[in-house]
Design a binder for these strands. Structure first.
Length: 604
RNA sequence: GGUGAUGUAGCUCAGCUGGUUAGAGCGAUCGACUCAUAAUCGAUAGGUCGUGUGUUCAAGUCACACCAUCACCA
């Protein structure tokens, strides 16, 4: 039965290239999950986009002497290309500066206001002359007006523990710029009344406790206990307008509108891709649907509590039963939020400023997408922070992906191609051992499928690898290359069996390493594609156009189940699936870390 | 400072509601094989489960404290 599955993927902040941490934290898990469910025949909608607003983009753009929009569009374009190259199969990867996103975010704002979830409040904050903005508390330091401690933070004194009112601090200054002048100035903002949702959120969290990751649940359950109002507007030039008279110089806070992207991108997908304005409702108002949020651990409360509050606060939006596709249900809240931990680099924390990072465009220039995918998946930080090491990359790619799986394909297909006239051998009857190995590999659809559904992806890939090793072991028992000389019929049985196993393994590996699985598919003599195509499209709105990455499923024919390989099917001449890595690459790559880097154009 | 997590073989990680000699993959050592990108297969050796107390007939698995690392909030 086909189920609606929504895969909501964290929105990358568009002020620098993507790196392996992005892949490990959210994109690869989401992609594997989405590909698997598509193979299962479910209705998958996987969306994300570039987060284009907020201070860091403005600051970076100023530094480069370009506009914020120019800056984010430059990286947006690079995001599209890099993700197409590594195969992250978004149904739609758009950005937050579309008219669509702006309009819906404003509608959310107005609906929250109408429903009594927003409150206006005046406050006095410290305004930075140098930065021309109100300085967030964490950048302010001063002398504590209670105990006299000189390095009290903007909001709390670390010495006496008292909470501080920033504007009362004695001699407040900007921690990043001692010459900056800070002036108390009054401003007015809207606040989201998060505390109004506590009574709904607690049972919501409780309901999902058993299948959520422990740290996600615990963290959220604790966070929800102390919910208070949070400002959703700010004094800044770059962002989404507050849709009220007299608020023209204020914008929505980026955290408030960026999470709405899961929803707004779904609406855009319906309009631009599905060409059915209401198609998004199948995921958002359908009680059968399950929404999964793939994010990093730094974002947990936003995706387990705050986003839910926004959805609860606008419940019913766009679902006024004026069209045939309206549902008689509430706006759906996320079913699971499988947050990942962080991926370190050679034992160090990722650091953009020190260039301690493995940039996606760079690694894809030098290595196969599936090699990158394989290593990152094997090292996913699902339960704890993990470490990307080039030695590990070298070893896992050569000794596991290439040696176990690539070599299995190569040895069997090469032998079949040479000794059986380029065809799948015909056989009389398979031995018990042959039938047993086929059955064992096919059972992977159950076990690996269950692991993927539980979002235990690292384990799922290991299980798949072990199955390919089982086939290697079985092959060594059967020794078709030796048997062939005396008993060609028996070699035919075992080679047929091995090919049948490879045909199954190709599907089991497909969500993880889709490019090589497609290659195996073709070597086995099949035509057509296991998955659809990723395309970069351009969409027009009334004032400007935007580009997006779009998954076109029309060519996809892969399914998550055992398919009988036809005897006599013509094979294609095989070649090695994976490029073997040279040991020197480890030191070469390590030497690149921390060095200045150029952003090369990304060839797709 | 508060909250949540993490700390298990050389490396990367499993170990659910406490229960026989703590598991896997890689690496190492030895052996087998030669169809295959010197790939594959088998066997062996590696751990006082961060530290310290405690609960229990029994603790990697529970409690408390401490140390280290990470994230969020401040």
């Amino acid at each position: 039965m086909s189920k609606p599955i929504h895969v909501s993927v964290a929105w990358p902040y568009s002020n620098g290239d993507l790196h392996v941490g992005h892949l490990a934290g959210a994109y690869l898990p989401a992609d594997i999950f989405a590909r698997y469910h598509r193979l299962k025949g479910h209705k998958v909608l996987m969306v994300s986009g570039s987060d284009s607003h907020g201070t860091p983009i403005l600051v970076e753009a100023n530094k480069r002497g370009i506009t914020a929009r120019e800056l984010f569009e430059q990286y947006h374009e690079r995001f599209l290309r890099a993700q197409k190259k590594v195969g992250i199969s978004y149904d739609l990867f758009t950005h937050t500066d579309t008219e669509n996103h702006h309009k819906i975010a404003q509608d959310f704002f107005l609906k929250l206001l109408e429903n009594g979830h927003l409150k206006k409040e005046k406050q006095t904050l410290l305004y930075s002359e140098a930065e021309k903005r109100f300085l967030p508390d964490r950048f302010v330091e001063g002398t504590c007006y209670i105990c006299g401690y000189e390095s009290a933070r903007g909001d709390q004194c670390d010495n006496c523990g008292n909470l501080m009112e920033t504007t009362k601090l004695i001699d407040p200054h900007n921690i990043e710029n001692p010459d900056d002048k800070l002036i108390p100035r009054e401003t007015e903002h809207y606040f989201l009344q998060l505390q109004q949702f506590v009574e709904t959120l607690i049972p919501y969290l409780e309901k999902h406790k058993d299948h959520w990751r422990a740290n996600v649940y615990n963290f959220s359950a604790n966070f929800v206990k102390d919910l208070r109002q949070r400002p959703i507007t700010r004094d800044i030039d770059w962002g989404i307008d507050v849709p009220l008279e007299g608020w023209g110089n204020k914008k929505m806070y980026v955290w408030f509108e960026a999470v709405m992207g899961y929803f707004t991108a779904s609406v855009e997908w319906a309009k631009n891709v599905a060409k059915d304005e209401n198609a998004w409702k199948e995921w958002w108002y359908n009680p059968e649907s399950k929404i999964y949020n793939f994010i990093g651990k730094d974002n947990i409360p936003f995706h387990t509590v705050i986003w839910q509050s926004e959805l609860l606060g606008v419940n019913g939006i766009y679902n006024d039963h004026s069209d045939a596709e309206s549902y008689d249900a509430d706006l759906q809240l996320p079913f699971d939020v499988p947050a990942n931990e962080f991926m370190n680099i050679e034992g160090d924390k990722f650091s953009k400023s020190r260039n301690l990072a493995i940039w996606l465009p760079d690694i894809l220039e030098r290595y196969q997408a599936d090699a990158v995918r394989y290593y990152v998946i094997r090292t996913l930080p699902e339960t704890t922070d993990s470490d990307f090491s080039w030695q590990g990359f070298y070893e896992r790619v050569n000794n596991e992906l290439l040696a176990a799986w690539g070599n299995l394909v190569n040895r069997v297909l090469g032998f079949a191609y040479k000794r059986f006239d380029g065809q799948v051998p015909e056989y009389d009857e398979l031995t018990e051992a042959d039938q047993a190995i086929i059955a064992k590999v096919q059972a992977g659809f159950e076990t690996i499928g269950a692991q993927i559904e539980a979002v235990k992806l690292r384990q799922a890939l290991e299980t798949t690898l072990l199955l390919s090793q089982d086939v290697n072991a079985w092959l060594n028992e059967r020794e078709p290359w030796k048997v062939y000389k005396a008993d060609k019929a028996d070699a035919a049985r075992s080679i047929y069996t091995a090919l049948q196993c490879i045909n199954t393994l190709k599907m089991l590996f497909a969500p993880f390493v889709p490019f090589s699985s497609q290659q195996v598919h073709e070597y086995l003599g099949f035509d057509g594609q296991l998955f659809g195509d990723l395309k970069i499209e351009e969409y027009a709105e009334s004032t400007r156009n935007h580009k997006a990455l779009v998954y076109d499923p029309s060519a996809a024919m892969g399914t998550w189940d055992a398919q009988e390989l036809a005897q006599g099917q013509a094979l294609r001449q095989p070649a090695p699936l994976f490029i073997k890595l040279e040991p020197e690459m480890v030191a070469e790559e390590q030497a690149r870390l921390g060095q200045p880097r150029d952003e090369h154009p990304i060839e797709v």
